[in-house]
């Protein structure tokens, strides 16, 4: 219930405020999106497996976003930012996929 409320709040905040991402932060937006989705799917799966832990959830979200952005930042400084952000999207994308598959198996038993 609270989770659904939070989702609704996030969506309405984003739609109402229409915040503009500063130009300097724009390269990190896709990375942050993928990291956020990864944390959300991981949390849902942990919830379904009855091992959800609020501390792990929060720290994994914040940590993933920060580390992913840091990797891309370093990559940008070294001139390989695009490749590194691709690699992060691939790795986190695989994780999202396997977590989604686990959720699907648990929910639909298929």
């Amino acid at each position: 219930m609270i989770v659904l409320l939070a989702v609704a709040m996030g969506v309405s905040l984003g739609l109402v405020l229409q915040p503009t991402v500063p130009l300097d932060l724009q390269p990190y937006l896709p990375i942050a999106v993928v990291a956020a989705l990864d944390a959300l799917f991981g949390g849902v799966r942990a919830w379904l497996e009855a091992i959800f832990d609020d501390r792990v959830f929060v720290i994994s979200f914040v940590g993933n976003v920060l580390v992913a952005s840091l990797i891309v930042y370093v990559g940008d400084k070294l001139g390989v930012g695009g490749q590194l952000s691709t690699s992060i999207v691939v790795v986190l994308g695989i994780r999202i996929f396997s977590n989604a598959a686990a959720i699907r198996r648990r929910v639909f038993r298929a």
């Binding site: 939070a6 989702v7 709040m9 996030g10 229409q18 999106v33 989705l37 959800f52």
Partner: peptide
């Protein structure tokens, strides 16, 4: 019991990031 305020805030933040990205792309 999980600290629901914390979880809710994180979920809201994660959703916000996704929505902001979508809004940005649309704009």
């Amino acid at each position: 019991r999980p600290r629901w305020a914390l979880v809710g805030a994180t979920v809201a933040a994660a959703t916000l990031v996704v929505v902001v990205a979508a809004v940005q792309t649309r704009a």
